[in-house]
Amino acid sequence: MNEPLRILIADDHPLFRKGLRALLATMPQTEVAGEATNGVEAVRLAGELRPDLILLDLHMPGGDGLTAIRRLATVAPQTHILVVTMFDDDDSVFAALRAGARGYTLKDTDDDEMIRAITAVGHGEAIFSPSIAGRIIAFFAQRPSQPATPFPSLTPSEHNVLQLLARGLPNETIAGRLNLSHKTVRNYVSAIFSKLHVASRAEAIVRAREAGIE
Rank of each mutant, 00 (worst) to 15 (best):
R70S: 07
G134R: 12
M86T: 06
L49I: 13
A117H: 04
V75E: 00
F16A: 03
G63R: 05
E48Y: 10
Y104D: 12
R21I: 10
P51S: 02
I69H: 00
L20P: 03
L56P: 05
T119P: 01
H123Y: 00
T30K: 08
T30W: 13
H59D: 03
K107I: 14
F128G: 11
I136A: 02
D91A: 03
T79H: 00
I136K: 07
D108P: 08
R70D: 12
G19A: 07
L24S: 04
D12L: 07
T67F: 00
A46H: 05
L66D: 03
A120D: 06
A95Y: 10
A46W: 09
M114N: 08
K18R: 12
I132R: 05
P14L: 08
V40I: 01
D91P: 06
S92Q: 14
I137V: 03
H59E: 03
R102W: 00
M114Q: 04
D11W: 11
V75G: 14
E35M: 09
E125G: 15
L58C: 06
T119Q: 04
A101Y: 00
I54L: 06
I54T: 03
D110V: 12
L49K: 09
D12Y: 01
T74Y: 14
T37C: 02
A96I: 14
G62T: 04
L56G: 11
Q29K: 15
G103D: 03
L24V: 04
I81R: 03
T37R: 13
I127L: 13
Y104H: 11
E35Q: 15
L55D: 03
D91W: 10
N38P: 09
A101G: 05
V84K: 01
T67M: 02
D110S: 08
A33G: 15
S131V: 07
T26R: 04
V43H: 04
H13L: 10
R70K: 07
P51Y: 04
D89G: 09
L49Y: 14
H13E: 06
L53V: 06
D89R: 14
A76T: 01
A33M: 13
A76H: 02
F128Y: 15
A96S: 11
K18M: 09
L106R: 06
H13R: 11
R17Q: 15
A96Y: 11
D108C: 00
T105C: 12
A46N: 11
I81F: 07
M86C: 08
L53R: 01
A133L: 15
E41I: 02
H59C: 04
D11Q: 11
D111L: 05
A133W: 14
H123F: 09
S129G: 12
R44D: 08
A126H: 10
R135M: 12
F94A: 07
V84P: 00
A117I: 12
A22K: 05
H59P: 03
Y104N: 10
L49C: 13
G19V: 00
E41S: 09
L15Y: 11
G100K: 14
P14I: 09
P14R: 06
D89S: 08
A36C: 13
R98A: 13
D91L: 08
A126K: 13
A101V: 07
G39E: 01
R71M: 09
M86S: 12
R71I: 02
A76D: 05
L15M: 12
E125Q: 11
A117Y: 00
L66I: 10
F16T: 01
